[in-house]
Simulated assay, not measured.
Amino acid sequence: MELYLRCFVHNCPSKWAEWISLAEFWYNTSYHSTLKSTPFKVLYGHKPRFFGIT
């Protein structure tokens, strides 16, 4: 997650807090080989909605 956040705030590092929620969303909806799923699906039992799109 750190690398993802670093890429977004490269030009303006003082605004990292504005991007943290997007970085968290990316992490929780990315496939994890250990879980063989995404953390979101493991926790809630269903796929997440992507900005209102089902």
Score class of each variant (00 low, 15 high):
38 T>N: 01
10 H>E: 14
29 T>H: 13
16 W>Y: 11
21 S>W: 09
24 E>F: 12
31 Y>K: 03
34 T>R: 07
3 L>Y: 03
41 K>P: 04
29 T>G: 06
17 A>S: 12
36 K>G: 01
52 G>C: 09
54 T>A: 11
18 E>I: 02
3 L>T: 06
3 L>A: 07
12 C>R: 11
41 K>V: 00
48 P>V: 03
16 W>V: 10
53 I>R: 11
38 T>L: 01
19 W>A: 09
49 R>G: 10
26 W>S: 11
21 S>N: 12
22 L>Y: 11
5 L>Q: 10
25 F>M: 11
27 Y>W: 14
22 L>H: 12
47 K>F: 09
45 G>M: 09
18 E>M: 04
5 L>P: 09
51 F>P: 02
34 T>Q: 07
2 E>N: 13
6 R>E: 13
41 K>T: 06
46 H>A: 15
26 W>E: 15
16 W>L: 10
1 M>R: 12
4 Y>P: 08
31 Y>H: 05
28 N>K: 12
40 F>I: 03
38 T>R: 05
10 H>W: 15
21 S>I: 08
3 L>M: 08
22 L>K: 10
53 I>T: 05
25 F>Y: 15
41 K>A: 12
48 P>N: 05
11 N>C: 05
19 W>S: 06
52 G>N: 06
21 S>G: 03
22 L>D: 13
37 S>G: 01
45 G>L: 15
51 F>S: 04
47 K>G: 05
15 K>M: 08
24 E>I: 15
52 G>V: 04
20 I>D: 05
35 L>F: 03
32 H>K: 11
50 F>G: 03
50 F>A: 06
38 T>M: 06
11 N>Y: 12
18 E>Q: 04
25 F>L: 15
22 L>N: 10
24 E>D: 15
27 Y>E: 10
52 G>W: 02
42 V>S: 01
28 N>Y: 09
17 A>C: 07
32 H>E: 06
6 R>I: 08
50 F>V: 08
4 Y>D: 13
19 W>E: 05
22 L>A: 12
15 K>T: 07
35 L>V: 02
31 Y>P: 00
21 S>A: 11
18 E>N: 03
54 T>Q: 14
18 E>T: 02
